[in-house]
């Protein structure tokens, strides 16, 4: 079985070899009267088309077209190849036409989002593995509800078992009503989680712990259990935030990829139609 490292090296070598070949052909064309932009342009278009076909492949899982993993590898490394092609095509100059400028911007956004996506996939997966338990994104609301119900059960239990409403009174007045319950009701602290900060959670726990002096021993235990549930909810929010990012970067990458293809085709048609004129 091919290890991840050796697969990465193999793919990088292939990608590098293809890049060298393309750059070589480009330079060979550049010493002729052939207009190199047509070589790099159409090659870039067809490579983009091949990259877009990955999404089609995912919609056709029943066809024997290779594993999705192989397609992803192809998508990633051929994607890197487009960086070389794009640089060659624009000649490292900022295009100054409307269509060309828009197209270049689209490419930068699509390629940028793709590279960002790969980075996030690698980075966030490590972060997710290091905190909390593995959770399925679609189940997060249910888990959140479960945690909220557990806290509510604890509050009811404390009143019923101990005949004391200290926690409930205290909570209903201040921390519980204004802080803990809202914290449990939905995903919170999205950006704090993305930057890896525990600050909102720690503040909440500190507030809860600061009430310990008013609790008796049993109530203190319940308060600790609530604290544990808050930690679990915070982990859940952490997973939710990261998984959301892992899913939403595709909201940029995929739709704009199609725009890129459409504009590329228009650009190619215009360039072909106007090619042997004075431009």
């Amino acid at each position: 079985m091919t290890s991840f490292a050796s697969r990465r090296w193999r793919n990088l070598v292939i990608c590098g070899a293809l890049s060298i070949l393309i750059v070589g052909i480009h330079f060979a064309y550049s010493v002729t009267l052939y207009r190199t932009v047509f070589f790099s342009g159409w090659l870039l278009f067809f490579v983009l088309l091949a990259l877009a076909s990955y999404n089609v492949r995912k919609k056709l899982p029943f066809l024997p077209l290779g594993t999705s993993s192989s397609w992803l590898q192809f998508h990633i490394y051929i994607g890197y190849l487009t960086l070389v092609l794009f640089a060659i095509h624009i000649g490292l100059h900022v295009p100054n036409g409307w269509i060309e400028g828009t197209l270049a911007l689209l490419y930068v956004v699509v390629a940028g989002s793709g590279i960002t996506g790969i980075g996030l996939t690698r980075w966030y997966s490590r972060r997710l593995a290091m905190r909390g338990r593995e959770v399925i994104f679609e189940r997060i609301p249910a888990m959140r509800k479960h945690l909220r119900e557990d806290v509510e059960d604890l509050l009811v239990r404390s009143a019923a078992e101990m005949g004391s409403t200290t926690i409930a009174d205290f909570s209903s007045r201040r921390v519980l009503t204004n802080q803990v319950i809202p914290f449990l009701e939905g995903p919170k602290n999205f950006f704090w989680h993305l930057i890896g900060s525990h600050r909102p959670r720690d503040e909440l726990l500190t507030k809860l712990q600061s009430q310990d002096r008013y609790f008796n021993e049993s109530e203190r235990k319940i308060a600790q259990e609530i604290g544990t549930l808050i930690l679990a909810k915070d982990d859940l929010d952490y997973h939710n935030a990261h998984q959301l990012v892992l899913k939403y970067w595709l909201f940029i990458h995929i739709p704009l990829s199609y725009s890129l293809l459409i504009l590329s085709l228009i650009h190619g048609a215009l360039a072909s139609a106007y090619r042997e004129s004075s431009s």
């Binding site: 048609a269 215009l270 072909s272 090619r275 042997e276 004075s278």
Partner: peptide, 14 residues
């Protein structure tokens, strides 16, 4: 314009 993608070079047209 689209047809010109597949057409041979228009050469001296322009």
């Amino acid at each position: 314009w689209v047809a010109s993608i597949y057409a041979s070079e228009s050469k001296a047209k322009g």
